[in-house]
C-alpha cells in the first residue's frame, strides 16, 4: 500500500516493463515485491500448463506462473536470462516468469487506452489497457488479478 503511494503521483504511475515473444508488457510497480533470477521450480502435479511450479521465497511457498504460457505464447524454456517477478495481489504472493526486465517506465493515465476488441485472443483476457508512447512503442498493461490461477484444482 505504502509502496503504491510512494510511486504514484496524481495521474501517474510507475510500471515494470518486460518482453514476451517480442511484445512489450508492463505490470504496475505497486504490486511488485522483488525480481529474482530464474531457478528451477518444484513441479506441481496436475497443475495447469501455465503453472511452472513452486519456489521457496524465504520460507514461503510461492507459485510461479509462466507468463508466456498464460498469455498464449506457448511454454517458456527458461534460461539464465529469465527472471521471476515476485508480485503480491490481495495478500497472495505469486512469481511471474518472464524474459529479461527491460525498463521501469512512468505511465500517465492519459496515455492508457482501452484494449481494442480483438477476437478471442487468450492474451486479451489478461490485459487491462494499452499504453502508447511518443516513440510509437506500445506497452500492454497486465491485470494481475485476472492472471492469477483462481481455483487451481479446476484449471480454467
Amino acid at each position: 500500500m505504502l509502496d503504491t503511494l510512494s510511486h504514484n503521483t496524481i495521474g501517474k504511475q510507475d510500471a515494470i516493463a518486460f518482453k514476451l515473444a517480442d511484445q512489450d508488457f508492463c505490470i504496475s510497480i505497486g504490486c511488485v515485491r522483488e525480481i529474482r533470477g530464474w531457478a528451477p521450480t518444484t513441479v506441481l502435479p496436475h497443475a495447469p500448463e501455465y503453472v511452472r511450479g513452486v519456489i521457496n521465497l524465504r520460507g514461503s511457498v510461492v507459485t510461479v506462473v509462466d507468463l508466456s504460457a498464460r498469455l498464449g505464447f506457448g511454454t517458456s524454456e527458461p534460461t539464465e536470462r529469465h527472471v521471476v517477478i515476485i508480485a503480491m495481489h490481495e495478500g497472495r504472493v505469486v512469481g511471474l516468469l518472464a524474459d529479461l526486465v527491460s525498463d521501469i517506465v512512468t505511465i500517465s493515465d492519459d496515455n492508457i487506452q482501452p484494449v481494442p476488441d480483438i477476437a478471442s485472443d487468450p492474451a486479451r483476457e489478461f490485459i487491462s489497457g494499452m499504453i502508447t508512447f511518443e516513440d510509437g512503442r506500445i506497452l500492454r498493461k497486465i491485470d494481475l488479478e485476472r492472471l492469477l490461477p483462481t481455483s487451481p484444482s479446476m484449471p480454467s
Binding site: 502435479p45 496436475h46 484444482s153
Partner: peptide, 21 residues
C-alpha cells in the same frame, strides 16, 4: 498461495532450500 493439489497434503523446504511436496 496456490491451492489444493490432489494426492498432496502440504509442502516443505529441504536442506538445499528447494521445496518438496
Amino acid at each position: 498461495n496456490y491451492g489444493r493439489v490432489p494426492g498432496v497434503s502440504a509442502a516443505t523446504i529441504l536442506g538445499d532450500g528447494k521445496i518438496a511436496l
